[in-house]
Structure formats: structure tokens, C-alpha cells
Amino acid sequence: MSDALPTHAGPFALGTFAASTGGPFPGLVTGRRVRDLSDRWGTVRAVTETWDASLARLTGLAHDPGGTWHELGALRILAPIEPGQILQSGANYRRHVVDLVAAERESVHGATPLEARADAIRMMDERARSGVPYIFLGSPRAICAPYDDVMLPSLGEQHDWELELALVIGREGRHIHREDAMSYVAGYTICNDITTRDRLYRPDLKAIGTDWFTAKNADTFLPTGPFLVPAAFVPDPSDVRITLRHNGVVRQDESTKDMIFDIARLIEYASSTTTLRPGDLLLTGSPAGNGAHWGTFLAPGDVMEAEITGLGTQRNACVADPHTL
């Protein structure tokens, strides 16, 4: 893990940890200390399955000196939760999508920069008024810990970062109304949805379109955590700061205010197709500042440092995938 211990909003957070001996265990984080919760729950996902009751119990345990406590700095921080399913929102940050659309208008359609940007802004205004979110599925096998190395496959060269606010579902629901949606959120965490851009489109299957599986779901391509911070301790998830540094250079630095569809709308839309269950992850989209925008991509030896207000930090070094043939 990083030299500086990650911090969290509120009096406590949840995570999954490993000591020098023994297997992973769910833990209650209070500042620099972690209470082993394995005497109450087997996993953090199990905690979310009875979230309302669990939250009250966790509040009591945070002030109880009993149980087994560890120093956070002595533990390995793992991804906080193993989700049932991962739902990912695409094209959900206004400035990011405007940049993409404007670039396409210039390069493909020959528009001037001013015309291209004005056209893109009109499109996003209309999308916000009458459009719907774009959601796809990710693989839980892509998850890695917030301080693990990210393995870059030899197939493809344009490995890109996409730092995102992610929410964890705490109640089962289908066809959830927008007005009720926030009550289904147990808490929030950080996800970095890494994408190999030059493997996103299949030249042999142009009519089919994007290949999300290949481009986004390689092992370690979803650094997650460090913690699950209860929603009650994040007073305004629609205005938290998302910041990513690549080799020390700030690349993403945006407020979640820039989301086209807010969290409640994303939950409403996702639940119109699939039942949301406790422990599911819903990623809310990536703000502007990806590598494609800067014309630089990840390579072995690079380091990504990421943070979202109140949720902690990530630090991932990039290495060549040793398993690649």
C-alpha cells in the first residue's frame, strides 16, 4: 500500500483486509485502526445484505473496544467488496462527451472548432433533457486492490485510465422510482475503469461495434477501493472531486456536478432492466481528462494516483502482464 494511510469521511468505513497470516477478512475502519468483523459477518457483501440493520450495529462496534483490532498500516488493503454484478455508465460526463463529439465533428465532418463544440453542446443539452443513460456490464474478475500493480496486456497499446465514483447497492429493488433511488445506496467507493482504446473496436466485426469485454475486463483493469464509505457520511455525492495523477501530472480533476444523468436517474434506469441486489456496484462514469484526450497512455513503469473526496486514495503502478504469451 502507499506510504500515507488513506483516510475516509465520517466516523468509520468498511473494507476487506489481510494480515501477514490468515485469509481476507471484513473490517471496520476507524481512522488508523481496523476491527475484524469476521466474528459477525463473513464478507463486506454480507454486511450490505441487511444494510439498515448492519449500519446500526457498525455504529455500536465503532465505539466498542472489544473484539480484535489491528493497526491499518500493518494490513494489506484489498478491494472492499466482491460485487454480485458491476454496472458501468458510459458517456455520462458533459465536458468529457462534448470533447469527444467535438473532436469527431472536426476530424470526420470538417467542422470548425467553434462549430464542432457548439454542435456537441447542443447534443448534450438535448440528451440531458430527453435521453437515457448508457449502461453496460463489467466483470468482477477485473477488480484488483487499490494499491496493487495493474498488468498491461501486450495486445493493444492505448491503455487508458477512467477514474469514477462508484456506489454500492444496499437494498434489493426493481423498477425503482427516481424519488426513492438514493435510499437503495449503501455507500460509495472508488473505481478506475481502465480501457485499452485500440481494442475497443473489432475491425473484423465493424457492424457489431464495441468490444467491451476485451477492452475493459483484463485482470487488474478495475482498481477498487480502498473503502466502502457509508452513504450517510457522504452528504452530497453530486458534488465530490475526482482527481487522477499520471506520473505526478494531474490528468482528471472534475466535480461529479458534471454528470449528465445523476445517481438517482442511473439507479432508476438500471433497475428498469435488472434487479439490483445488495453488494452490486454501479459506476457513474468518467469525467474529462482521459489519456486519449492528452495523447498519452499507460506504459510499464507508470504510476496512477487517484482520489475522490472523502473516499480515500488509490496508487497503482503499471507493469507488463507476465502471463501474456
Rank of each mutant, 00 (worst) to 15 (best):
5 L>H: 03
10 G>P: 06
14 L>N: 01
16 T>S: 11
16 T>M: 10
19 A>Y: 02
19 A>F: 00
25 F>T: 04
27 G>R: 00
28 L>H: 06
28 L>V: 07
29 V>G: 01
30 T>L: 08
30 T>Q: 09
32 R>Y: 04
33 R>G: 02
33 R>C: 01
37 L>K: 03
37 L>V: 04
37 L>N: 04
39 D>F: 05
43 T>K: 05
48 T>A: 06
53 A>D: 14
54 S>E: 03
56 A>Y: 11
60 G>S: 09
60 G>Y: 07
61 L>K: 08
67 G>P: 01
68 T>H: 12
68 T>Y: 02
76 R>C: 03
76 R>N: 05
80 P>W: 02
82 E>A: 13
85 Q>F: 07
87 L>S: 09
90 G>L: 10
94 R>H: 13
94 R>T: 13
96 H>F: 12
98 V>A: 09
103 A>C: 06
103 A>E: 14
104 E>V: 11
105 R>K: 14
109 H>T: 03
110 G>A: 06
111 A>P: 00
114 L>V: 15
114 L>A: 15
117 R>P: 01
121 I>Q: 08
121 I>C: 08
121 I>D: 08
122 R>G: 14
122 R>N: 11
122 R>F: 07
125 D>L: 08
126 E>M: 05
128 A>P: 06
128 A>V: 08
129 R>I: 00
129 R>V: 02
129 R>A: 13
129 R>K: 11
131 G>Y: 03
131 G>H: 05
132 V>I: 12
134 Y>V: 14
134 Y>H: 15
135 I>N: 09
141 R>G: 09
148 D>L: 03
149 D>C: 14
152 L>W: 01
157 E>T: 12
161 W>F: 07
165 L>P: 00
169 I>H: 04
175 H>F: 15
177 H>E: 13
182 M>V: 07
183 S>Y: 02
190 I>F: 04
193 D>I: 03
201 Y>Q: 15
203 P>T: 12
205 L>K: 15
206 K>R: 15
208 I>R: 13
209 G>Q: 09
218 A>T: 08
226 P>C: 02
226 P>Y: 03
232 A>L: 15
233 F>S: 02
235 P>Y: 09
236 D>V: 08
237 P>K: 09
238 S>R: 12
243 T>Q: 13
246 H>K: 07
254 E>T: 15
258 D>G: 10
260 I>L: 13
262 D>Q: 10
265 R>W: 08
267 I>T: 03
268 E>D: 10
277 R>S: 11
282 L>T: 06
287 P>Y: 09
290 N>I: 15
297 F>S: 02
303 V>F: 05
307 E>A: 11
307 E>I: 02
307 E>K: 07
310 G>S: 04
311 L>E: 01
311 L>V: 01
315 R>G: 00
315 R>F: 00
317 A>D: 11
319 V>D: 09
